[in-house]
Amino acid sequence: MAVRADDIPVPRGRPRLAGRVREWLDQESILGPVFVTPALLLLVLLVAYPFLMALYFAMSNAFIGRPSEFIGIRNFVRLWDSDAFRQTFQNAFVFTGIAVAFKLVFGICLALLLNEQLWFKRFIRGAVLLPWVIPTALSTLGWWWMFNSLYSVVNWTGIAVGFMDPPGPNWLGQKYYAMTAVVTVNVWRGLPFFAITILAGLVAIPRELYEAAEADGAGPVARFWLITLPLLKPVLAIVVLFSTIFTFSDFNIVYVLTRGGPINSTHLFATLSRVVGIDTGRIGEGAAISLYLFPLLVFVVWAQLRFVRKQAY
């Protein structure tokens, strides 16, 4: 029996809709936004909204639980009157400058070491990441015990081997020692990030370049300065950029180790912001403290990304 086309049941509604959706999604102008929207929503909700709120708070006399008024940049101007803030400003640059420099130098050294043919290479590479993986507050608590005046294992060891005179340095009670302590912990924690990222950059450098250089008689130092370092520059720029931002905004290490003392000599923007904004309720001022360096950091980001782009092309 012949079957007429009209006799075949045609599924109605759904297939037509599905077909239309497929048709839409085939268009790049529609598919692109569909993929980007969830990420964009997350960014708006978790980054843009809190940032705009912080910006508003910073330009208001907001106090927890009370109505607030817009006061322009008065918070930013008035902060300079505070000795604690001026000290914090200085601390942030000293802390970040020294810590990032040490992390960069040690990070390159560690990455070069990890790039060699070592026994238990995978295990060592995994172990190097530990300081980065352990929750900062927890590991800093361990360091606090090591620097604690009553139980300091650092001083105990130093005295035992004759390296220090009893009772040893007052790590957390003297401003230079306290800064040394917080920088040390920050370097210890941030080093894996540098080492592993730089290692990824090292692995990507073609071996042929080294072989050619060796054939031309270049020694290890020359190979490092003329091949490794120039080719690592984009990676280094990115890693320094991220680390500068993370280090400027560090909170846990100082909060657990010194709470900003002695005499505010280790306070950073985040820790002072907490004291003023949360502990005392003045969230307007607290937000201004935490956003103080935002314009500078934006400039740093812009300059470094520009540098990276130049290196890449």
Binding site: P167, N170, L172, Q174
Partner: peptide
């Protein structure tokens, strides 16, 4: 006292 009091929690 001893200087450690400058670092106490």
């Amino acid at each position: 006292m001893e200087p450690e009091v400058l670092s106490w929690s």
